[in-house]
Design a binder for these strands. Sequence first.
DNA 1: CTATATTTGTGCGTATGTATG
DNA 2: ACATACATACGCACAAATATA
Lengths: 72, 72
Amino acid sequence: MAPVPRYQQIAAILRARIEAGKLAPGQRIPSEPTLMQEFGVARNTARHAIGLLRDEELVVTVPGVGTFVRSR
Amino acid sequence: MAPVPRYQQIAAILRARIEAGKLAPGQRIPSEPTLMQEFGVARNTARHAIGLLRDEELVVTVPGVGTFVRSR
DNA sequence: CTATATTTGTGCGTATGTATG
DNA sequence: ACATACATACGCACAAATATA
């Protein structure tokens, strides 16, 4: 039984928040350190989750600033 | 083989200076850029070391000013 | 009051090492 | 060999707070 990787779980949670409007377009999603604390994971794992959302073009990352929900 | 992380080493050095009175209560400890140069580390690493001392309540940080040895 | 420099706060990019299944 | 996950540590950029000229 393949357990769902945590980075996928975290991505799913963030995706749900975005689709529920809890994270609105243009809004900044929680930073990597925040996700680290909220989910109790390492930075790599938090980054991996964000990377999935970026691949889906749900979010856009601005280096040094943050990651934002994409407007549509 | 776990080498002692540099941020722990730096924290230990600063802690020793404090306990030896080389850094007296109320006195400002070296700034982050100074620690970077003195120990040849990145800012994150210097900050990590300071963070440990802050967790131990050996120092207090004032944003925009510096980090000071705690009085007791 | 304005402008500049200093210092800390925050956030992301990247690389490497360790450990486990 | 590979994927997952944590830890360490380098870097860059910009903002906020403070001090000083």
